[in-house]
Computed example of a mutant assay.
Amino acid sequence: MASPFCEPRPDRPPRRVVVLGSPGSGKTSFCHLLASTTGLPLYHLDDFYWSPGWSRPTEEEWNRRVHALCALPRWIADGNYAATAEPRVHAADLVVLFDRHPLLCAAALARRCLRLRRAARTRAAPRWAPRPAGRGRRRSAVSGQPEYVPRLLREAGDPPVLSLTALLRKALLFRRRDMVVIHAALRGANTPVHRCRTRRQAAALLTALADPGKRPPSPPGANRLAGPPTPRATATPLPEARFPNHLPPGGPTPPAPVRPCTCPAAAPVTPLWRNT
């Protein structure tokens, strides 16, 4: 794995958690359940990145938003955006990396996109049209929660999926592209990393993080680098000189507004992830 430290410290629950993984791996459902069990505020990077009409921010504005999130004392950061993974990993107390098989991620992603598009067509139907049973606010087949859609896209009524083909390509090539950049960021940070290859491991990690006295199970050698571990550096604030691209030059700039998740999928639920 990308870090020799695969378990969080048992004497101090993590206050800042980064969740990474391929699209369709289940990381967003995991984040909602983690937020409901730990009380940590959840921030979706897609909420900060996408604007109405699927428009993107400038590189400077995006880096400013990421730094504003990293400066907060408590958070769960859901999303990859591998180019800005380094400052988030340095600021985090724990990294959860979903490493499921690309074909499983692609299949789950296709099912989710079809559910979102079906629900969008149902909402767009005239009020007099009969609604099929079970339609409306679609729920995830994994967690039983409503599906997540980026906030500004949801408020603007934009299509919930821009390109299914692009998402499938990203899931199938995730290990060869994004994972390489993520591993490089993790190697430089020495932040504790827990890798989840199955939903059962994710459910066990949720249970462990809900009880700070328990350590999440780690298969021997599954989450470790080859070679002896290196000592973890003392936790310090984000070094401004080390991330020049993530801070605007010329003095301080008012941070971008950072709001935690308010989507329908954030409603607390009782059952944890199915152990499958």
Results as ranks from 00 to 15, higher is better:
Asn190Val: 05
Val269Lys: 04
Arg112Met: 09
Thr230Leu: 14
Pro220Glu: 07
Thr234His: 05
Ser22Ala: 14
Asp158Ser: 04
Ser163Lys: 06
Trp54Pro: 04
Trp54Lys: 01
Thr84Ala: 05
Trp128Asp: 14
Glu86His: 12
Ala256Tyr: 02
Asp78Asn: 14
Leu20Ala: 12
Pro14Arg: 02
Ser22Trp: 04
Arg195Ser: 13
Pro126Ile: 09
Ala226Pro: 11
Ala222Asn: 01
Val18Arg: 09
Gly213Arg: 15
Ala203Gly: 10
Cys6Arg: 13
Ala222Tyr: 11
Pro216Ala: 09
Gly134Asp: 02
Arg56Phe: 03
Asp46Gln: 04
Leu103Ile: 12
Lys27Ile: 00
Leu116Lys: 12
Ala267Phe: 01
Pro244Phe: 10
Glu59Gln: 14
Ala71Asp: 13
Leu72Arg: 15
Asp99Gln: 12
Ala265Ser: 14
Leu97Gly: 01
Val95Arg: 03
Thr234Asn: 00
Glu86Leu: 13
Trp54Leu: 11
Leu152Asp: 14
Val161Glu: 11
Met1Gln: 09
Asp46Glu: 13
Pro271Cys: 00
Asp46Met: 02
Thr84Trp: 04
Leu40His: 11
Ala120Thr: 06
Ala156Met: 02
Glu86Asn: 06
Gly144Val: 00
Pro260Glu: 12
Val180Lys: 11
Pro212Arg: 10
Ala35Ser: 15
Asp211Val: 03
Ile182Lys: 08
Asn275Trp: 08
Asp11Ser: 15
Leu20Pro: 01
Arg224Met: 00
Cys105Glu: 10
Ala108Asp: 06
Thr230His: 12
Thr207Lys: 13
Ala92Arg: 02
Ala107Thr: 13
Asp158Ile: 01
Arg121Gly: 15
Ala71Pro: 02
Thr28Phe: 12
Ala108Lys: 03
Glu86Met: 09
Arg139Phe: 02
Arg121Glu: 12
Cys70Leu: 05
Ile182His: 09
Pro102Gly: 03
Leu153Trp: 05
Leu247Met: 05
Arg138Ala: 15
Gly251Thr: 09
Leu114Pro: 02
Thr38Cys: 09
Thr58Ser: 14
Lys214His: 15
Thr191Cys: 14
Ala171Ile: 06
Val89Thr: 13
Ala222Ser: 14
Ala82Asn: 11
Pro150Lys: 11
Pro228Ile: 07
Pro228Trp: 05
Leu97Gln: 09
Arg74Asp: 13
Ala120Met: 08
Arg154Asn: 00
Arg199His: 15
Met1Lys: 08
Cys105Asp: 06
Leu109Cys: 11
Arg12Gly: 07
Cys6His: 14
Arg131Pro: 04
Gly136Cys: 06
Arg259Tyr: 00
Thr270Gln: 11
Cys263Glu: 02
